[in-house]
Simulated assay, not measured.
Amino acid sequence: MTAPVPLPQGPYTPRATPLELPAGGAPLTSRTVYSAAHVVADPYTDTGPGGPAAVDWESTLAFRRHLWSHGLGVAEAMDTAQRGMGLDWSGAAELIRRSGAEARAVGGRIACGVGTDQLPSSSTPTLAEVTSAYEEQLTLAEANGVQPILMASRALARAARGPEDYLAVYAHLLRQSGEPVILHWLGPMFDPALEGYWGSADLDEATDTFLKVIAEHPDKVDGIKISLLDAAREIDVRRRLPSGVRCYTGDDFHYPELIAGDEQGFSHALLGIFDPLGPLAAHAVRVLDTGDVEGFRALLDPTVELSRHLFQPPTRFYKTGVVLLAWLAGHQDHFTMVGGLQSARSLPHLAKAYQLADGLGLFPDPELAAHRMRTLLEVQGGTR
């Protein structure tokens, strides 16, 4: 039996074996599911605060192959990849190029974030500059054969004077896109700089503007991703979408019920929590593919406590817990993040994340995970 791990909240005895899941499996059919994947830092590159991101490309791509092997799509260069929180546009562009090529090589589904983060954050740009920045990134995504995800833009939030400016910028971009895109509404709990997006702090008014963009260009919108952690609002928006436009839940608090759906529809998924839950999430959706909603909920409902813990306020630092779990699971050799973000969560928070994940059986090698957690506790917390 594995020896107890001395967590700050008390000794914890790890489980002896991981959760047993079927290997591989048929393609997912009832839902389109993306995991927003993290990047693996290169801990031996000499870079300082504010410097360019140092990425371990092979480990980063290996993790994407892991997700694809289970039948999940990869949502690339999104906030889970520390976009705007350590990963700048130069690094994101290289990530899109490399992941796009890897997806083609293995036949994996991929969509990539398109934004405006090449613009300086120290000034307010013009709408023309915002539009041009979006176009540059859209061109790169399409040149690399990946589906674009039009991300919410901090620069547009600074430049826009009201809803009409959002309508104009998005209308131009949708006319420019060669294929249907995914629109992403990221709430201020994930990025405070996006407060009042779509031209209003009133969510009802913002929702109306968001839906107007889609209604005017339904043929250019594959789907929408809503990351507001508000299940009722997502359901309301989902029911008001034009026929053929998908809703991809980005709600890391209510995803089982939103994916399961109701008599009037359901959500697909594009989730950061599906980074650590990848194999389990894919298996759950395959169960749902058979029509077994109860079986699907029985698999995913117990994971919500872990997700709510990782995404607790300040929500934008959830990436730290995601990378911790990837390290503990053996997907990478270290717990270092670009921009030094491994320091963004407290030791008790990380210890609780380990305990919840181990209780779910997420670690392929529980002994390795326990050893690494002990090491982290000793290094960061000393001996007690």
Rank of each mutant, 00 (worst) to 15 (best):
residue 72 L to E: 03
residue 35 S to T: 10
residue 51 G to P: 14
residue 43 P to K: 05
residue 60 T to I: 07
residue 62 A to H: 14
residue 72 L to Q: 09
residue 39 V to M: 06
residue 54 A to Y: 04
residue 63 F to R: 02
residue 71 G to L: 14
residue 54 A to D: 04
residue 34 Y to F: 15
residue 34 Y to H: 11
residue 71 G to F: 10
residue 58 E to W: 01
residue 69 S to T: 01
residue 41 A to P: 06
residue 58 E to K: 01
residue 69 S to E: 01
residue 66 H to S: 01
residue 63 F to P: 00
residue 79 D to C: 13
residue 37 A to E: 00
residue 62 A to P: 09
residue 57 W to D: 00
residue 61 L to E: 03
residue 62 A to V: 06
residue 75 A to K: 07
residue 45 T to G: 11
residue 35 S to E: 02
residue 73 G to V: 05
residue 48 G to I: 10
residue 66 H to I: 00
residue 33 V to F: 10
residue 54 A to I: 10
residue 42 D to G: 06
residue 68 W to L: 06
residue 54 A to V: 11
residue 38 H to Q: 11
residue 65 R to I: 02
residue 57 W to N: 04
residue 48 G to W: 14
residue 65 R to W: 02
residue 75 A to Y: 11
residue 42 D to P: 05
residue 64 R to K: 15
residue 61 L to C: 11
residue 53 A to W: 02
residue 69 S to N: 11
residue 74 V to K: 06
residue 45 T to N: 05
residue 38 H to L: 06
residue 49 P to K: 14
residue 51 G to R: 09
residue 80 T to Y: 11
residue 59 S to K: 13
residue 67 L to T: 06
residue 70 H to D: 13
residue 68 W to M: 05
residue 67 L to H: 14
residue 74 V to N: 03
residue 34 Y to G: 01
residue 42 D to I: 08
residue 67 L to I: 09
residue 58 E to G: 01
residue 72 L to C: 13
residue 39 V to S: 05
residue 49 P to C: 10
residue 78 M to I: 05
residue 59 S to F: 03
residue 77 A to Y: 06
residue 64 R to I: 01
